[in-house]
Amino acid sequence: MTMKDNHPIRILFGSFFSSGLRAKRTRVFMLLAMVPVLLMLAARVMQGVGTVSAGDVAGFFSHFMLSLYFQLLIPVLALFFGSSIVNDELDNKTLVYLTTVPVRRRSVLLGKYLAALLLAALLIIAGFLLCFLAASLTRLGDAAVWEELGLFLGTSLLALSCYSALFTALGAFMKKSILSGLFFVFGWESVVQYFPGVTQKFTIVHWVKSLLPIPPGQNSFLSFQLQPSPALESVLVLLAASLLFLYLAIFIFERKEYILSDNA
């Protein structure tokens, strides 16, 4: 069954996706997403002039680039896009337009969430694809390379949807959610993943990393104190968490009274 053209979720998705493409925030994050590409190209150039070996370049990708994407870029993009779904409406006092039309609040939230998710995904995937191709230029004929790419992209999408749903809920709950989100990403997630026992399972990054190949080496950014969780379990947990956070976001957004200023 397909969603009708005039379904509110589809209308809102289309409208906010196209206006999101023109937004200043998207342009800033597009530049940010290109930083790893430039780093990767620089590594390739250094390999070309013989400063570093091909093995070093491969190591650079598996150690540094994956960490950069999965521990920094994906959570940060999800934070800014996810929390803006409700926060932008409050800051710009535009929520009134979406809550005085005959559309349920859940449709508003879902339409905007999907638009934000697609925008963030396009930025991540475009940058990641270029990085990956630069890293694997000499191995493009190898089927395993493409399998690996599929794994990375699938994991990226799962991570993005989970983080975005979490930060959408946070944005629906509190007006200034960026600080709390940053604390979550760089505080809780960074510290707890190295705790012994099952505590690290209370982070999103644990389940994300469980899907990625563990690179060789002692000081890897992706090293684990515990063995990673099984892949299927990780996928299911990330999907379930995405749905749970999204449900939480809808629950809050439908019940919370948002008081825009100038109440007189």
């Binding site: 006092k93 535009t94 337009y97 005085t100 039309v101």
Partner: peptide, 18 residues
């Protein structure tokens, strides 16, 4: 929300999707 087919509201504050 059903009721908003019959209601129009022009808010006071200067807000828009820029």
């Amino acid at each position: 929300p059903r009721l908003f087919r019959r209601i129009g509201f022009c808010p006071e504050h200067d807000s828009a999707y820029a």
